[in-house]
Design a protein around this nucleic acid. Structure first.
Length: 281
DNA sequence: CTCTCGCATTTCTGTGTCCG
DNA sequence: CGGACACAGAAATGCGAGAG
C-alpha cells in the first residue's frame, strides 16, 4: 500500500494484478451498426424484417430506398463522422458506440462506499489496458478525512481516458462519485461514453442466468469461482470496523472483494467485445 | 383529393433489478 | 434506502391502401 500526497492530504494506492488483454480493435463505425435498419426513424422490428426480405440488408442498401433512403443517408453520415449524439438520438446504445474508441481510452471503474446514500466513498478500483495488458489499481482512503484526496487521485488518473466501463455504474458509481465531488467542491469529469455492462449482459443473457448480480454473472460466463468472498452488503460494516479499530485485517476482505470485482469486470468486457477472457487469469 | 380503416410505430405508465 | 435502464402492455399517433 503506497501513501500518496495531494493538495488535499494523503490517500493510498494499491497496484493490482496484470494479465494479457483480448485483441484490440480498429476504431470506426461497426458492422453491426450498419446492419441496424431500426436506427432509421419510422422503422420498427416488423418493417426491418420486411425490408430485409426485400433485399435491404444494411443501411447502405437502404439509402436507395424510395421512402427511407433520405433518413438512412442521414444515419450513414452520422456513422461515418462518428457523431455520437446523433447516433444515440437514433437509438444506438453506448455499448454499440464502443467501436469508435480505442480500448486504451477506456477505464473500468468499481467503487466501494460506506453506505448507499450520503456516505463517503473510500475505495475506487480502476482497470485499463496498456501495451496489450490489463492493469488494475485501487485508490483507498483510510478514513473519511482522506476521501477528498482519494477523489483527487482517481480524477487525476482518469484524465487520460475518454470513456468509462462499469457494472450498474450509470445508476450507482457515476452519480455517487458525482455527488461526492460536488460535496468536496471538485470539478466533475466529462466522459464521451459510459458502457454499463449490467444492462448489456441482461439483454444478451436474459434466458440463461438466474440473476444478474456481478458475482453470478462472472461465475457463469467466466467459469471462475471466488473463494471466501464477502457479499457487497457487508462492505460498510467492515470499513466502519476498520476505522474504529485500525486493524488492517478487517479491511483486507474488502480490498480483495473490490479487486476480484475489477478483474471480473475487465474480463467480462473482454468477453463481450473480443470473445476473449474465457481462460482463467 | 378526401375520408376511413387497419396496422406499425411511438409515447406513456408501471414494475423489477442491480449497485454498498 | 435512489436512480437508470430494460421490458411489457396500453394508449396515442402516423402512414398508406382503397373507395367514393
Amino acid at each position: 500500500m503506497l501513501r500518496l500526497h495531494t493538495p488535499y492530504g494523503e490517500a493510498c494506492s494499491i497496484e493490482g494484478p496484470s494479465w494479457p488483454a483480448g485483441e484490440a480493435w480498429r476504431p470506426g463505425p461497426s458492422e453491426s451498426l450498419l446492419r441496424q435498419l431500426q436506427l432509421v426513424y419510422g422503422i420498427g422490428p416488423h418493417t426491418e424484417e420486411r425490408l430485409r426480405r426485400e433485399g435491404f440488408s444494411d443501411l447502405v442498401a437502404l439509402s436507395r430506398h424510395p421512402r427511407f433512403g433520405a433518413e438512412a443517408r442521414k444515419v450513414l453520415q452520422a456513422l461515418e463522422q462518428g457523431d455520437l449524439a446523433a447516433l444515440r438520438q437514433a437509438g444506438a446504445r453506448d455499448y454499440e458506440l464502443l467501436s469508435y474508441f480505442d480500448s486504451a481510452d477506456l477505464a473500468v471503474i468499481d467503487i466501494e462506499t460506506a453506505g448507499f446514500r450520503g456516505w463517503p466513498v473510500f475505495l475506487i478500483g480502476l482497470g485499463w489496458q496498456e501495451d496489450g495488458s490489463w492493469r488494475v489499481r485501487q485508490y483507498f482512503a483510510r478514513g473519511f478525512e482522506e476521501e477528498k484526496a482519494l477523489l483527487y487521485l482517481a480524477l487525476d488518473f482518469l484524465q487520460r481516458f475518454s470513456g468509462l466501463v462499469s457494472y450498474n455504474g450509470r445508476a450507482f458509481d457515476e452519480p455517487f462519485v458525482a455527488e461526492r465531488l460536488t460535496y468536496h467542491r471538485l470539478e466533475r469529469p466529462h466522459f464521451l461514453i459510459h458502457v454499463d455492462l449490467y444492462h448489456e449482459i441482461r439483454r444478451l443473457f436474459r434466458e440463461e442466468l438466474p440473476d444478474f448480480r456481478l458475482s453470478t454473472v462472472a461465475g457463469h460466463l467466466l467459469s471462475c469461482r471466488r473463494t471466501a468472498d464477502i457479499p457487497g452488503e457487508r462492505v460498510p460494516e467492515l470499513y466502519l470496523r476498520y476505522m474504529a479499530e485500525g486493524e488492517e485485517e478487517s479491511i483486507m476482505p474488502v480490498l480483495r472483494h473490490n479487486e476480484a470485482d475489477m478483474v471480473d469486470l475487465c474480463r467480462l468486457f473482454d468477453l463481450l467485445t473480443t470473445g476473449a477472457g474465457r481462460s482463467v487469469a
